[in-house]
Design a protein around this nucleic acid. Structure first.
Lengths: 171, 171
DNA sequence: TAAAAATACTCCATAGGTATTTTAT
DNA sequence: ATAAAATACCTATGGAGTATTTTTA
């Protein structure tokens, strides 16, 4: 429920939003085609499940299931919605996985500065090994002088520098 | 919270699930980079928003935002997650639209039976007009004798029949 | 020292539970 | 007669509110 005060008048707007939990419930009902068994598998009671599915249908504004007291089946719209729901739930998982991998440094982007010298010494083997260990990390390679690399590091333009020591410019 | 009774022992499992509302909140915070303003635009209080974002981060298991008491910015993982969140929310809308259009008959699939005669009389114009009015409905055309159409209708193999009256076989 | 996020609590809306009714087979 | 979904009503979790504290620019 949204409560808004405008010109001293309290506006109350009832707005329902679809939630992922309702999709998880609906997927189970569609799989079992039986509210009691679905409720058991979800570890909730049958009336609680019935009510949530009814809420979901109210939210979308149409029937997803046809029920007699003995049988439950998907409507045509329900068949479309169940496919969409499964897809959405799996995309949620994918989104979380991708985010976690990014945080662990297993996905994302790395910009590397390197000198001419590094090109034909350490770099080839390093890049090869890195690529095989972290296939989801994109690499950008920038050929820069040692001094330019220090400046680029300071400006966050590169993440890693391969340069010749000692550094002549102050960091 | 899941409560399960097995062998007379009450098992309590705490499980949090990500919900779309948290994604809606996170998108707003990422847009404003300011909890107070984001809370205003969401018509909730700042502490309520802070707590929900904290819940979301706990659920995913990592920080999506770095906050000092003066500034808020997205972490690298947060940048990935915000893109995913926006995509998910727009896919939710698409899913609902598609389902509603299906229910209104504006999307889906229609199988039509027709006789040789219909091919060069009513059918061409009908199909043309239908296609322009309902571009999202797929059409399947089956050339069948009048008798075969009656049988196919009864078996739900076609949705519409174009045939020669009177029907000789009993429906 | 002021702006802004977090913390501490209180409250209530609603998800979920139990008991019962309804209905189709 | 019975299985299964809906309805009625109650309970309680957790989302949201207000007041306050903490922190850093």
């Amino acid at each position: 429920m949204i409560v808004q005060v405008i010109f001293g008048i309290k506006l109350i707007t009832l707005s329902y939003y679809m939630e992922l939990q309702q999709l998880r419930y609906f997927v189970m009902v569609a799989e079992e085609l039986h509210f009691g068994r679905a409720a058991d598998r979800l570890h909730i009671s049958q009336p609680a499940l019935s009510k949530q599915i009814a809420n979901l249908e109210k939210e979308i504004g149409l029937a997803l299931l046809t029920r007699t007291k003995r049988t439950v089946k998907l409507t045509t719209a329900g068949q479309v919605f169940i496919e969409q729901s499964k897809q959405l739930l799996s995309q949620v998982d994918t989104a979380i996985q991708l985010t976690r991998r990014t945080a662990r440094g297993e996905a994302g982007h790395l910009t590397i500065g390197f000198t001419e010298t590094a090109t034909h010494t350490v770099l080839p083997n390093l890049v090869k090994e890195f690529r095989s260990n972290y296939p989801n990390v994109e690499l950008t390679m920038l050929g820069l002088s040692t001094e330019a690399q220090v400046a680029a590091l300071n400006r966050d333009q590169i993440d890693i520098a391969f340069c010749i020591l000692p550094l002549m410019s102050a960091a």
